[in-house]
């Protein structure tokens, strides 16, 4: 099952990646190869098997609701490249 160029462009858009035409060709090939490989999972019978994502079985881990130490404004901004009025300054996003 080979991905189409359009599909690769769609994936790149979802992932906020700008690809060149050359890259689109390259990833069309490589992504298809990888998706082809993982198809071997179809050989494994998973009827009635529940998916898992947390392997040590811990759940609902909470800590005591106590106020701890946090960064001062000065500490938080210490290594920032640009700051303004006690904030990080970045390029306009929207």
């Amino acid at each position: 099952m080979k991905l189409t160029k359009e599909e690769v462009k769609h994936i790149a858009k979802l992932a906020e990646l700008d690809l060149t035409d050359k890259e689109i060709d390259k990833y069309q090939q490589e992504l298809s190869e990888i998706l082809e490989y993982v198809k071997i999972l179809d050989e494994v019978d998973t009827k009635n098997v529940k998916p898992i994502s947390q392997v040590t079985g811990f759940s609902n881990i909470v800590r005591a609701d106590e106020v701890g130490k946090s960064f001062t404004n000065k500490e938080a901004l210490k290594n920032a490249k640009r700051t303004k009025d006690g904030y990080f300054e970045v390029e306009q996003v929207i």
Binding site: V38, V44, T46, K50, P51, I52
Partner: peptide
Amino acid sequence: YYLKAQKVRRLII
């Protein structure tokens, strides 16, 4: 893909 993989992961465990 994802859900299938997490099911096989349980079998591995």
